[in-house]
Amino acid sequence: MAFEIQTALFSLGGVVIGGGISSATTWLIARSERRKFAREKTWDVRRQAYTKIIAEMVVATSWANEMELGFRRNPREYEKSPKADKDSGEFAGCVVTAKRVFIANRLMLSQRFVAEFDAIMNDFERENRETLIQANLVSKIHEIFERGTKRLTEIGISETVANLT
């Protein structure tokens, strides 16, 4: 009789230990999957924000280029033309949209991206305050946006590569 009790207890102990190991393994896998899901979801939001901000910055750069070309061809005529008003309005619309997306997603963006976007906007606002000659202002703004868009794109690409590995 003692042998049967000992065998039953040994079997029961094996079941308890096996169940404990199985439960711990299941918990660890579920925890890992939750973290992976959260990381992927965060990256999806960040990627969408990067895409929208950079796209708006690229279009703004194109409009700044249009304005710069207009001032190079004939500054006096361009400055008073409806095309200048249209180009300026389109540029401003892109900048406003980029800022709105940035503000709406600021907590999800990387510190590098936030710092670079802030630097671009600070340079842009400083030039708007300090540069009095419209043709010079447009040239500087075009340069700021072209250089800044390139840096934002590089940050986005480096973070994409880092996220995939």
Results as ranks from 00 to 15, higher is better:
L137K: 07
K99R: 15
N136T: 11
I133Y: 14
T51G: 06
K52C: 08
T97S: 15
I133W: 14
A30Y: 08
R147I: 13
T97L: 10
Y50C: 05
L107P: 07
R73H: 08
G156V: 03
A115F: 02
M1I: 08
R31L: 15
S110K: 01
R39W: 14
E77Y: 14
L152E: 03
L109S: 01
T97F: 04
A8T: 06
M1K: 12
R129M: 07
S139L: 10
R151N: 02
R106W: 05
L132T: 09
V45C: 07
Q48A: 13
K41T: 13
T97R: 07
I17Y: 02
V114M: 02
A8V: 10
S32C: 10
T97D: 07
E127F: 10
N105Y: 03
T153I: 15
F91N: 01
V101C: 01
V58Q: 05
I133A: 14
R151P: 00
R72Y: 10
Q48G: 13
L109W: 00
V161C: 07
R39F: 12
R47M: 09
A64K: 01
V138A: 08
M57R: 01
Y78V: 04
T149V: 10
I21M: 15
E77G: 13
S81L: 04
I120W: 00
N74W: 02
N122L: 15
R46P: 00
I144M: 06
T149W: 00
F37N: 11
D118F: 03
A30V: 07
E116N: 08
L109D: 00
E127S: 11
F117H: 03
F102Q: 03
W43V: 05
S88G: 13
K36Y: 11
E143W: 08
F71M: 02
T7M: 13
R34D: 14
L164K: 15
G89D: 04
D123P: 06
V95Y: 02
A104M: 08
T97P: 01
L132E: 08
T61A: 10
S88M: 07
L9R: 03
S23A: 15
E130L: 12
K52L: 15
N122S: 15
I157N: 09
W63N: 05
F102A: 09
G89V: 02
Y78F: 07
D44S: 13
T149R: 01
V96Q: 14
W63A: 08
E66P: 00
E146G: 15
E154F: 05
G18A: 05
S22H: 08
G89H: 00
M108W: 04
L132D: 09
Q134H: 10
K36I: 15
I141W: 00
R46Y: 03
T7C: 11
K52E: 11
G70P: 00
K99V: 06
I120L: 04
V96C: 11
S62V: 07
A2W: 09
A24I: 03
G148A: 06
K80I: 09
L137S: 05
D44M: 12
C94K: 03
V101A: 03
E40N: 14
V101M: 01
R46C: 07
E56S: 11
K80E: 09
T165W: 05
V59T: 09
